[in-house]
Design a protein around this nucleic acid. Sequence first.
DNA 1: AGTATAAATCTGACCGGTCGGTCAACAGAG
DNA 2: CTCTGTTGACCGACCGGTCAGATTTATACT
Lengths: 211, 211
Amino acid sequence: MAAKQFVQDYEDQRRDELIKATYYEVAEKGYSAVTLQDIAKRAGVSKGSTLYYFATKEDLFLGALEWMVEQVHTRIVNTIATVEGPVEKMKAVIRTIFANAQDSRQFFLAYTDFISIGTRNKRFHDLNAKFYDGCCGHDREIIQAGIESGVFRNVDIEDASTMVRALVDGMMLQWFFSSQGTFDDYRRRCERIVLDYLTGGTVTENAETTA
Amino acid sequence: MAAKQFVQDYEDQRRDELIKATYYEVAEKGYSAVTLQDIAKRAGVSKGSTLYYFATKEDLFLGALEWMVEQVHTRIVNTIATVEGPVEKMKAVIRTIFANAQDSRQFFLAYTDFISIGTRNKRFHDLNAKFYDGCCGHDREIIQAGIESGVFRNVDIEDASTMVRALVDGMMLQWFFSSQGTFDDYRRRCERIVLDYLTGGTVTENAETTA
DNA sequence: AGTATAAATCTGACCGGTCGGTCAACAGAG
DNA sequence: CTCTGTTGACCGACCGGTCAGATTTATACT
């Protein structure tokens, strides 16, 4: 039983390595451009092994995606917990999402590649829903708390939630494309716009704690 | 000379057909998934002909893109001219961009595929800039006019402009992915959020003229 | 007008190369 | 020896791009 457990752990670890390798390769080059060879090389195994652990390239890719979603989710939850109040919590969410995008370089590139694979893919759709609800779902309760405590104006919660998500997405897209203006410029502007919208302009610009 | 002119026109027309064929194919399947064969078939010519008029597949694709950008730009300019006042003009811009996305089905799909091709491509970057400045650049003057006339609150114009663009982008992305809620729902919500932001909530919901 | 000649246009078989996926053979732990 | 895990040569399919030759159109000449 102990041996069996060891094998299980070993296999899990291998899968993990392959998933991470896939993620980083795709983040750098995009789904179509990455070959199984690339993934195998980065993971330090042969091409044959990649398909020993995963059925297809797509399977490997979706695994990598799930891993990423999980990771971002965890980061957001942790970051929110470190600050107090709706304004700071909202800032924290935005900061985390932006930071993640910066870390994984071409986070969005990978994301946009899903589309090419086909939006009809059920697993992809579910993953997308999980991403939105899991990673961005926190904004709704933060907004709710903000309204109840009177910090945010009485805006429609569904509108506000949509606004935050769409704005973050859109601004990252712009940052990705335009490459004019620093990353921090975009993040700061994003925070400002969101809070401006939520408070109606009553929040004065805080001193930035640029970590 | 007349014959020469005819030949010129004929060639232009052929190029036009190929460009449109490319556009629709890519809009349906995405750049990578589309083959020269597909494009040729839709245009009613042979594969060889596509590369007789265009040097490479990428060239063909960028031509299609330019065509699209031009088209959207024209539509926006025309639509803005038909209405009066910052609020209505802003609505018109949003409506046109949304309508265009709906028309060409997977407008964004094509767009996201550029990224895979490589953001280092100069022509792509220029096109992107042209798209933003040409198609979305009108928002800045509309916002300016709105602030001056007192219809919009005194918000930072750069923030406001960024907000509108990012929100439209982001919401279209969400519409594209989630496929829950009708297209009109998204468009209407987008208009509401933008105007809510710009006016600070002083504009009451107008009766919709859903065309 | 009719014919010959030249030029423009078009075609699809073909080439070189790539990639996802297969599989027979191999390795090493138990 | 066996069984799990690993390998990389190999396969079939595909795709962008080429090109020699067919086809159509324009031009020159009688």
